[in-house]
Design a protein around this nucleic acid. Structure first.
Lengths: 211, 211
DNA sequence: TTGTACTCGTTAAAACATTGACAATAATCA
DNA sequence: TGATTATTGTCAATGTTTTAACGAGTACAA
């Protein structure tokens, strides 16, 4: 470690993790970089180089032990960290995220859901009751969440983010259609700009049709 | 055109589009690459080079006309194409996507929603009624959708994708936690792997805390 | 036990992406 | 009108990522 690993590599790790899980489920014990490359569509060279950023998990003439590699990548990703997480905005998307993600398996623990609409207060989502946004600050003071998921309109996103940073939030998973400008620059922002993703796809459809 | 533009550039276009929209809403008429770079956090050089992939939209000593540039990028992205789109899987996530995305403004037109659960048949989502997945094939034959959004469990994703390709679907927006292997390789797949995104963020939180 | 086939980790090369520099040109102001 | 300032488009340099090549070590079969 010590040496920082490039973003491109990091973004591939969850994908490796997924494929290795799949292999484990199918009872496969060992795999070579070449076999994995065929399954995943990367080059074998890239796979070896990626894994090697974190140390030599493989063995010449053998390949990689699937479950060992899976465990190692899980450890690197921090899937057992259980970071306390809150979700702001319990509209359609917020509720979907709250119920659809397997937070526990991904290093998070969802401990609070908030919405500005008073009518939603006490409505259950998963096994949590929605709280009014008024309660965010006191909740943070008591429970010290680390991650916040923003599923709110872009108009209010920046303001709420600033408040949350003041109360100790270290990272945002941002579904709002805007780019946050964190006041302090050690804050982590992971954008899930679904609109951008959709538009990229439309571009590609369009580009493929006019040759 | 003609010359293919790199993926990195394409993925930035929706972001430019968003920022330019914002500027328009604020009544700003012109902007230089330097000003835009300060707002967006790219370098001015990159912005000029990006725009220039598609032709010279700017003018020396002046900069870019905001609404003209916005329109040009919109045209490049194909926001007016209205590609017929269907959504498979009307669970929490599917319903959120159906109602939360502004498809019309992004080059898509949502014309059908399907779910395997018969109890959901005829339930309204947005202004569409959920149909049973049995009806997908006949619906495709009648309406010729181009894009399919997959919000279904990974177990059934590949099978449904294959069926859809046979019925003329050209592109997938894939929310299933798996990587599709399209039988034909001119099919476009845009993955929205939310789980991967979350795990990347957790990695970063973890990495930032152990210095 | 020996030889062959396999596969890793690593180094070097190639491809790709970003940034910096600057000539050319337009806008602006005296 | 002419001088000054601003800003683009583009080319070259730099930096980053991916791919290829290969020595060294392991597994496995004869």
């Amino acid at each position: 470690m010590g040496n920082t690993v490039s973003t491109s590599v990091i973004r591939r790790l969850p994908r490796y993790y997924r494929f290795l899980q799949e292999l484990m489920n199918n009872g496969i014990i060992r795999i070579s970089s070449r076999e994995l490359s065929e399954k995943m569509g990367f080059t074998a060279s890239q796979i070896r180089q990626d894994f090697n950023c974190f140390g030599g998990f493989g063995q010449q003439g053998y390949g990689y032990n699937v479950s060992e590699l899976h465990a190692e990548i899980g450890k690197i990703l921090g899937v057992d960290k259980g970071y306390k997480t809150i979700l702001i905005g319990a509209g359609n998307l917020g509720r979907a995220i709250a119920t659809h993600m397997n937070f526990d398996a991904r290093g998070c623990k969802l401990i609070g859901i908030f919405d500005v609409n008073p009518e939603l207060a006490n409505v259950e989502v998963g096994n949590l009751k929605i709280m009014h946004t008024d309660k965010i600050e006191s909740f943070c003071n008591e429970n010290s969440p680390v991650i916040a998921i923003l599923c709110i309109p872009k108009e209010s996103a920046q303001e709420i983010a600033d408040t949350l940073v003041k109360h100790g939030i270290k990272a945002f998973w941002n579904f709002s259609h805007c780019d946050l400008k964190p006041t302090f620059n050690d804050i982590i922002v992971e954008n899930a700009h679904l609109g951008d993703s959709l538009m990229t796809m439309v571009y590609n459809v369009n580009a493929s049709s006019d040759n």
